[in-house]
Amino acid sequence: MSTDRLSTRFAACAAQGRAALVTFVTAGDPDLATSAGILAALPGAGADIIELGMPFTDPMADGPAIQRGNLRSLGAGTTLKALLAMVAEFRQTDAATPIVLMGYFNPILAFGPERFAQAARAAGIDGCIVVDLPPEEAGELVPALSAHGLHLVRLATPTTDAARLPAVLDGASGFLYYVAVAGITGANSAAAADIAAAVTRLKAATPLPIAVGFGVRTPEQAAAIAAHADAVVVGSAIVDAIGAAAEQRANDIPARVAVQVGALAAAVRDARKDHAA
């Protein structure tokens, strides 16, 4: 097994005294070829970790932006197999940037948990976030992921109280994803003070890095979170931009995404300097 890309990357960002930028895109959005171009452009633009959405017909926890991204991808014929092939190709030129898959359980179940874990590891995936698989139901996936050295990233939310938190942390690995607002992706934004308080509370409960997402759209919002959290996740804003560019039939979508991610990355890198000053 190679060294753990996630822990290496979190350690590197911490050593630089900054948070990591996690960028979410839906695999195959708007089509596989463009998506491969976007993926290749992300690390150079400043994405420290890539969260890659596995498209699903019924993304219950996602808002309109990511729903549309899922439909564009499925409309273009994306399958889990094709997604993994795209990641394997990415790994030919980038062995360091962690990639975490994010999606819903049914496509994994249809693929077969063991076959999925084996194929994901072989393609160069580092972990998974499965939105509709709470700890109570995770037994069907955890053994396969563990056997192949893949992290199962758990989610904590504003409704995760002190009584619930131990269940969420039991078996959590890679990092802890804090969902900043009770709601769907790309909708409301949480107050910075509430996020800071939640991060402090979670850090007291786990040594895992804390990534914060949901409702983070602008460089300013990303910077405010990066002042406290170990990582900031931006998703819907990027997916929205991809959708708008696809609608215009733009042929420079990866370059446009790189500009957007560059601005987010700069804000995240400067966040603690501003904070200190």
């Binding site: 219950m60 926890a61 359980f105 939105v131 509709d132 698989l133 709470p134 109570e136 139901e137 758990r154 989610l155 904590a156 939310t157 504003p158 409704t159 995760t160 109280d161 619930r164 969420v168 969902v179 009770a182 709601g183």
Partner: peptide, 22 residues
């Protein structure tokens, strides 16, 4: 106790909903 009928049923929801379901 976990809402299963044989291999079926269960609670496959986002973590935000878990405390509510419980």
């Amino acid at each position: 106790a976990n809402g299963h009928f044989g291999p079926f049923g269960g609670r496959y929801v986002a973590e935000t909903l878990m405390p509510l379901i419980l």
